[in-house]
Nucleic acid binder design. Structure first.
Lengths: 339, 339
DNA sequence: TTGTACGCGTTATCAT
DNA sequence: ATGATAACGCGTACAA
């Protein structure tokens, strides 16, 4: 049975509240925004009118007049499936949400299909939000340089262009990757491969460089590189390619835990034991790390904290306050059973 | 080094475009909304002005004037961590996004921390969106009855109150659960337990009823019930409680695949083999089903399709068209190795 | 085909 | 302490 669209009842306006309470719109506005200097009795009667009418301020009108929207966007320039599969996004959004829930700001998340970047741009610049948090950034995506000229933006990870003019929160990926690799070297491993991340993101680039640097200073081979895209599936494929080279491999640094999990699966298939035959170190310390067997030795990435700091910095920018351009968070090596 | 907030450059207005192009604002507005009957030459010069100024329409103003926002919200009344851990949400959002990306509508996702439902309510009713898609609904949450009076809303799964006045897309959970259980019965299993879902959601309630009905008509015991919350962890706990009862169990129906995965882990711990000792059937047919060993026999839940239909129905409602109140999608049993 | 003028619901400024 | 009144940026009858 088809029915017509429900005739939605109109949302009451401030004007209607004013009429019911017998005061002017200005006074209602003051009550709504708890301005000082309003007669307590009037406050009460206005509040009554508000609740009997179920009044809700129209945000469009509000933001038009006040030039603020009280909402911020988390933008994820990745495909939906990737966003949900990767605990990194879940965790950082959780961190962001945690600090935002205490404030008057509403968090909206927009999964920016790369198909239509201009949709995202017009949403962000169209006065829908007071600021944006970008949690993944690829080198090819230049739209941000223009967006951040007109809107406060905080990145997770150092962005490409205009690094000096951008705000971002990150960890020292180079140092951390180097530390992870050094752990393998210290364990006596000599043929150390890496499954690295996308080379159009600093998270990928810097982790590769860190691995390389550690091997260089130990005068070890740096040719065992395969690139993944941070997904578990890509980790599997990379591990296969690595093994199919036929060279000896006794150590592996995966640029994130998901890819390490992919590698685990392939190693199991081929009866290569961890850590006896190959010692493995990951990156992120997410839910994958502890659920693997043996538990994954990995770099602890303070992702929730990143979310906190991003949100704090953004709010500070929005309210016109000062903020650090670069916020660097510490990492640590978590030694478990895999290396 | 702290810096002052970047003085964000103001976004140009329609008025500025008009001035630059030497026409009136109305004309610019017409060009922006590709109205018919505009002189091609003027269109060109206006478009030039638009791109040199990088003009972007202000959505707040636009929606105030036109009473439409061109954006819809997906609302997930669950904790952030749950949202990301459960492939159901990922998949349904993907389906929604797929059909929405073809349209002029922007999708915003709002993870409604149950802590502050009024924040969500004022966002939705505050004129930020033209409609909402609700992908999880608990019986305790009454805020929706009022919201859907003023805003087109489509639910995933039959909502509680005002069922007759609501729009929703769902599968026949009762029949599907019954079908799954019957499969176990047909395989000769006689002590069939269930790990069921939250009893404040129809997805949980109806799957339990379906299991029960199938057992009843086969005159089998219906006491082996434990309740989970659709998470893997809860599946583990439920399986433990089930086994600790000390009764014989040779079949299990889990109300979703994640909980089945949890059960798998516990069964492995206790060296109970699947399907030899216990045959297992799940529900959803998500990524968990195929990654388990043995692969999980389960009910295929057309989640992407649900997303499509939800989005289509919502758009139809928004544009004032007709729409089915109840859209029922078919399920099927996918037989794999576990039963 | 183009421009004028008014209204959308709210905040902000200025009197009172 | 309260109330007019003018923006805010845009869409849209209506007039030209």
């Amino acid at each position: 049975m088809k029915t017509d669209a429900s005739r939605t009842r109109p949302v009451p306006t401030l004007e209607m509240v004013a009429a019911l309470a017998g005061v002017s719109r200005s006074t209602v506005s003051r009550v709504v925004n708890d301005a000082p200097n309003v007669d307590p009795d009037i406050v009460k009667s206005v509040q009554n009118a508000i609740s009997t009418l179920n009044y809700i301020p129209n945000r469009a009108a509000r933001s038009l007049a006040s030039r603020r929207t009280n909402s911020v966007a988390v933008v994820v320039p990745e495909s939906t499936s990737k966003v949900f599969a990767d605990p990194f996004f879940a965790t950082i959004v959780e961190g962001i949400a945690q600090t935002l829930v205490e404030t008057k700001y509403t968090l909206t998340m927009i999964v920016s299909s790369e198909a239509r970047p201009e949709k995202t741009r017009s949403y962000l610049l169209g006065g829908n939000v007071d600021g944006a948090l970008v949690v993944s950034h690829h080198s090819g995506d230049h739209s941000w340089t223009r967006i951040s000229e007109s809107l406060p933006v905080v990145f997770a990870g150092r962005p490409f262009k205009a690094e000096r003019e951008s705000y971002f929160v990150e960890v020292d990926n180079f140092a951390a990757a180097s530390r992870a690799t050094q752990h393998l070297i210290d364990a006596g491993r000599t043929s150390i491969a890496t499954i690295t991340g996308p080379q159009d993101m600093y998270a990928g680039i810097d982790r590769l460089r860190g691995w390389e640097a550690a091997l260089r200073s130990a005068r070890l081979d740096t040719s065992l590189v395969e690139v993944g895209d941070f997904t578990e599936a890509s980790g599997q494929e990379a591990m296969r390619r690595l093994l199919d080279r036929g060279q000896k491999i006794d150590g592996l640094f995966a640029a994130n835990d998901q890819m390490a999990a992919g590698a685990y699966a392939v190693l199991a298939e081929r009866n290569i034991s961890i850590p006896a035959d190959i010692a493995v170190v990951g990156f992120d310390d997410d839910s994958f790390a502890t659920s693997l067997t043996p538990a994954l030795t990995t770099i602890h990435h303070p992702i929730v904290e990143m979310g906190h700091r991003m949100a704090e910095n953004l709010l500070s920018l929005i309210e016109g306050g000062p903020a650090e351009r670069a916020t660097l968070l510490p990492t640590s090596l978590v030694v478990r059973g895999s290396a």
